[in-house]
Design a protein around this nucleic acid. Structure first.
Length: 740
DNA sequence: AGCACGCCGACT
DNA sequence: GTCGGCGTGCTC
């Protein structure tokens, strides 16, 4: 119910009676709810969406519960401006918001804002204008008018103006003319649903072997109801999607809504079509570049319950579903689930929390689960379901390590003779080769041969990467770019700049030199022509119009290339030595994903992995396929990173996935524990180095996830003061039991 | 987050 | 003499 603002002020002589004061979460980075007066005759309850004044502007807020600040004079409080005509946020949703705010040490108002981020959706949706045939004839008949009338007579349902014109193959002015003659009357129709309702029994599933058991396991969890967390751990091509589709079907049969979380990049037309084939309708989409109108429609459909299934990126986790009954997190290991600004959260972990608070099952899915989820599986907190074999005729590629010390490339090159032979054989058979290198551009570093000058970013001091296609040198950290200079800016020498190391463009150059007749393409996110061109190129590749694809990690995700029978990893070691505590895990996941692109239609396929460290556990795990052993070792390594109880609270490193996140934590720490001096903020790669140098007595590592018990940590710090002999427990994200 | 106020440099 | 840089501080 919207209230008229003129009624808020009462008459001149009677002071408005303050009937009630309520706390309201406003979208500001403040730690508490603000208090507002509720005008007489206005009904609000916890969860109501309201418009309130903040200084000179109006914002959307949510009525919360709890005590109001008693220091504020209720008479001086400003009144709520408007109550939106919209179902209030449920108790579950409010508990979820409070929980996430407390866990991530974020202002609750900013967390709440993520749930109500479609402001215009709060207005009632406009009715659609329609036309109904009421009989009669126009004064003059024409062939076009006859066509329209024939159609309207045979199909007696309301038409839209353009729909009728299109169906009768006339221009809309013909329809307008008939309407003016009184043949049609204008009526108002409720807006059409955003998406059709999916039918759980549209296409019965055809599950094979281990899929059956896996589906039975998770379907029974959904059937039983109540909170549970499952981890579907299945190799690429093992049919994980079909399995979780059955869980979705069961939830739909129970009349509950379903949320499928996907990394943004995996929200492809291919996925939506697959869903449609099983359920007869597409899910509603939710992601960052949804058109504003669509965003509003989906948001409203979710609140009212009209939308049954949402497939969305991480932000979809905060949609206020009416009756959510299941969350599926596909590709649960994907780093894209981590939000890196404002509110730092991992949607995968918060999905589990939402399931626990809402008392419904959550299913995590991956071919290469995160170490965190593996630990939860081993500890019995998640029920692990294995799908060990490929489905149908698909066979895993035959994987081999290429020891680059024994098979060096020719001078100036990066492809070993072994890989070049493999490419030759593959394209001779009319099949495709994929060369993977996770590095955009031509070369990661450029220097002057004469004076040794290195091109460095003026803004953030990382190396500038040469991009030959664009004739630019770019900073991959901050986006700085300039035209590739011809002369060295330091010594002025012309044409003496030398590229160091490979990027995909440079690999393409090498490939073209060896296979001038082959059709070659470079796929990377900075591709000229944008997303549209990329889609077309991916289709062309799938059709077999390309022989050799050279790509960055963008080709690793989701796409199916039936003719791809050779995958060459150009530099498998890349990313193993960047100081990231998760480097080995990430590399394992990436390499598994890329090699999984091959052999999906039964053709015999091969993976060649170029490495200088063939003994490295990641390489061994990839070729042996012994993932359990790899995870066991990773878990051990991660647990070693949890420091034993330490002595004095002398100084502290705060380190996180990004410097910005570490800054956020540090601010919280400084505010909560002013007695602790010597708090340093370091980037992800610097913290281990500082520790090695012994500058700090201990560290608080919040790499990647916020699963460490920050609240407990702060309390312990405050309790012990700066010089106390302390034994603060630091809980690293490897063991995220704090939310279960 | 926004948007104010507030104090020091180059300009109609 | 003003316009404008962005540094602190407040919003129920």
């Amino acid at each position: 119910m919207a209230i008229d603002s003129s009624s808020l002020f009462g008459s001149l002589f009677e002071a408005p009676a303050v009937t009630r004061v309520v706390p309201v979460l406003v979208p500001l980075p403040v730690p508490v709810a603000y208090s507002y007066a509720v005008p007489e005759g206005v009904h609000v309850e916890p969860g109501s969406l309201v418009q309130v004044p903040i200084g000179p502007r109006q914002v959307i807020g949510v009525v919360w519960e709890g005590d109001n600040d008693e220091k504020l004079d209720p008479k001086k409080l400003r009144p709520i401006t408007l109550v939106f005509d919209c179902p209030p946020l449920s108790k579950e949703m409010r508990d979820f918001i409070d929980w996430v705010a407390s866990y991530t040490l974020s202002p609750p108002g900013l967390v709440a804002r993520m749930a109500i981020r479609a402001p215009a959706a709060l207005d009632p949706e406009a009715m659609v204008e329609g036309l109904r045939y009421i009989g009669g004839q126009p004064e003059r008949m024409t062939p076009a008018r006859t066509r329209v009338l024939d159609l309207a007579k045979t199909q007696d349902h309301p038409w839209t103006r353009s729909g009728l014109a299109h169906a009768a193959n006339v221009s809309s002015s013909v329809v307008d003319g008939l309407t003016a003659q009184g043949v049609f009357e204008t009526i108002f129709l409720p807006p059409p649903p955003v998406v059709a309702r999916p039918d759980p029994d549209f296409t019965p599933p055809r599950l094979e072997g281990p899929q059956k058991q896996a589906a039975q396991d998770i379907v029974s969890a959904v059937h039983k109801g109540g909170f549970s967390a499952a981890l579907i751990d299945g190799v690429t091509g093992s049919g994980k999607t079909e399995v979780y589709f059955e869980a979705i079907a069961e939830s739909l049969r129970q009349g509950r809504q379903v949320l499928i979380l996907l990394p943004e990049i995996a929200l492809t037309p291919a996925f939506l079509e697959r869903f449609e084939a099983r359920f007869g309708a597409k899910p509603a989409e939710w992601h960052s570049d949804l058109a504003p109108r669509m965003r509003e429609k989906v948001w409203r459909g979710v609140v009212t319950g009209e939308v049954r299934v949402v497939a969305g990126a991480r932000s979809a986790l905060f949609l206020p579903f009416e009756q959510l009954g299941l969350i599926v997190v596909d590709e649960e290991h994907d780093p894209a689930y981590k939000q890196e600004d404002r509110v730092f959260y991992n949607a995968r972990d918060m999905a589990v929390v939402r399931g626990r608070i809402g008392d419904f099952p959550v299913v995590l899915v991956s071919a290469t689960p995160s170490v965190e989820s593996q630990v939860n599986g081993l500890a019995g907190r998640y029920n692990t379901v294995h799908l060990p074999t490929r489905f149908g005729e698909a066979a895993l590629p035959d994987l081999h390590l290429v020891d680059m010390r024994r098979h060096p490339p020719e001078r100036g090159g990066f492809l070993s003779p072994v890989l070049l032979r493999g490419i030759k054989r593959t394209i001779e058979k009319g099949e495709q080769a994929l060369l993977f290198l996770n590095r955009r551009g031509y070369a990661p570093l450029t220097l002057c041969r004469v004076c040794g000058h290195r091109f460095q970013c003026p803004q953030c001091s990382s190396w500038l990467v040469e991009h030959r296609f664009r004739s630019q040198i770019q900073c991959h950290q901050c986006g700085y770019a300039e035209r590739t200079p011809e002369a060295c800016p330091d010594c002025g020498t012309l044409d003496h700049l030398v590229a160091c190391g490979p990027g995909v463009e440079r690999i393409a150059e090498e490939v073209e030199k060896h296979f001038p007749q082959a059709r070659t393409i470079v796929m990377s996110s900075d591709m000229l022509g944008g997303v549209k061109r990329m889609r077309l190129e991916l289709e062309a590749i799938a059709k077999g119009d390309v022989d050799i694809v050279i790509g960055t990690q963008l080709v690793a995700k989701g796409h199916n290339f039936p003719l791809m029978t050779l995958v060459g990893i150009v530099d498998a070691d890349l990313g193993l030595s960047n100081g990231d505590p998760r480097a080995a895990e990430r590399t394992f996941q990436l390499l598994s994903q890329v090699t999984g692109r091959a052999g999906r239609t039964g053709l015999k396929s091969l993976g060649l992995i170029q490495t200088f460290q063939p003994q490295h556990p990641v390489m061994q795990a990839i070729v042996s396929g012994d993932a359990p052993a790899f995870y066991e070792r990773e878990i051990e390594e991660r647990q070693k990173a949890i420091l034993p109880p330490f002595g004095r609270l002398a100084s502290l490193i705060v380190s996180a996935d990004t410097r910005a996140e570490a800054e956020t934590h540090a601010r919280g720490l400084r505010a909560a524990a002013p007695s602790v001096t010597g708090i340093s903020v370091l980037g992800p790669a610097e913290a281990p180095l500082a520790l090695v140098r012994g500058r700090h007595r201990f560290r608080l590592l919040v790499h990647g996830r916020r699963n460490c018990d920050m609240q407990g940590f702060l309390k312990a710090m405050i309790a012990q003061g700066p010089k106390a002999k302390s034994s603060v427990q630091i809980q690293l994200d490897v063991d995220p039991q704090s939310f279960l």
